[in-house]
Design a protein around this nucleic acid. Structure first.
Lengths: 154, 154
DNA sequence: CCAATATCGGAAGAATCTTCCATGCGAGCA
DNA sequence: TGCTCGCATGGAAGATTCTTCCGATATTGG
C-alpha cells in the first residue's frame, strides 16, 4: 500500500478536488478505467490519507459571514507554555478559520470570518485581545477577496 | 425560492460542510425528513448558491506542498490600474491559495503553498517580486499550522 | 371559510455502488 | 526461454441509492 501515485491517481485527485460530488462512474470514465478499478483507487486515496475529507463549500455571504479579516498577533512571552495556552484558546473560537505560528514580526496570523465590521469590533474587544498572553494585535480588514482558498496545484 | 433557510436547511448545510460525501439517505435520516424531501432541499442549497461547490481536501504533505507561507505585499502605486494588473497576474499563479486586498500596512496578503523553503525562495525571486507594480514584500514562514481552513461556523 | 400554493412522504424505475471472481500482465528466477 | 507468483484489472450481479412522479397534507392569502 506504499506504492506511489501514478498518473491516474493524480488525475483522480485533481478531479475530486474540483468536484467532490463526481460519481464513481463519472470519475472512472474521465480517467479511462473501469468503475471497479476506480472504486478501489478512490478508496485508497482516502484510506492512505491523500484525501483527508470532502467538504461542501458554503458561500459565506449566504450565511452572514461576509466579512473577512486578517489579524497579526504578538504575544507577551515567547515561551512554549505561552504558545500552547494561546493555541488551545484559539481552537475554541469557531470564527477563526486559520491560525498559523509564523516567523517574522508577528507570532501568529489569524484569518477570521464574521458578519460585518461591527461584529468584528465586538469580537476583537471581547475575545481576541482577551486571548491568553496577547500583547498586541494588528488588524487588516479585507476589502476585496481576489482569491480565496484556491484548490491545490500539484 | 427566496425563502430563508429553516433549521433543517441549516443543519443540512453543517452536515454537508463536515462531510460532503454523505449520501442523500444518510443526510435525510440525520435531519429526520424523507429522502425525497432531503433531495429537494439539497438541490435547492446548490441551485441557490448556498453551497458553491464540493471539494475533496487533498493533504498538502502528500503531494509535496507541505510548506505554507504568508506574504504581505506593497505596491508602487495605489491606482486602480495598478491593482487590476497585480490581481490579474496573481490569478495565474496556482501556488497562491489566498490573495486579499487589505486595509493597513500592506496592500495585499498572500497565502502560498509550496514544497519547501527552497521552492519558496526560488518562486519568490522568480515570480513574486516580478509581479506587476510590487514595491516590496514581507515574508512570514509558517512554522506551525494550528488551524488551517476550518469549516465555517454559522 | 375557501381556494391556491407549497411542501411533504411513499413508491418505483433507473442508475449507481460494492464486491466477488476469473483473466491478464509483469517481475523474478532457474 | 519458460515458469510461477503476485498484483492490478474488468466483468458481472445483488444490494443500495438516486430521482422523479404522485396524491395527501399543511400553509397562506383573500
Amino acid at each position: 500500500m506504499r506504492a506511489p501515485l501514478d498518473r491516474i491517481d493524480l488525475k483522480m485527485l485533481r478531479l475530486l478536488q474540483d468536484n467532490g460530488r463526481l460519481t464513481n462512474a463519472e470519475l472512472a470514465q474521465s480517467v479511462a478505467v473501469s468503475p471497479a478499478t476506480c472504486h478501489r483507487r478512490t478508496q485508497r486515496l482516502f484510506d492512505e490519507g491523500y484525501i483527508s475529507h470532502v467538504r461542501a463549500v458554503v458561500t459565506p455571504q449566504k450565511v452572514d459571514r461576509g466579512a473577512l479579516v486578517m489579524v497579526g498577533v504578538v504575544l507577551d512571552r515567547s515561551t512554549p507554555e505561552s504558545f500552547a495556552d494561546f493555541e488551545k484558546a484559539v481552537a475554541k473560537l469557531k470564527f477563526i478559520l486559520d491560525c498559523h505560528l509564523v516567523a517574522g514580526d508577528f507570532d501568529y496570523f489569524l484569518k477570521i470570518r464574521v458578519g460585518d465590521m461591527a461584529d468584528f469590533n465586538r469580537i476583537h474587544g471581547d475575545q481576541l485581545i482577551a486571548l491568553p498572553g496577547v500583547r498586541q494585535t494588528r488588524t487588516f480588514f479585507v476589502m476585496k477577496e481576489v482569491v480565496d482558498n484556491a484548490p491545490l496545484d500539484f
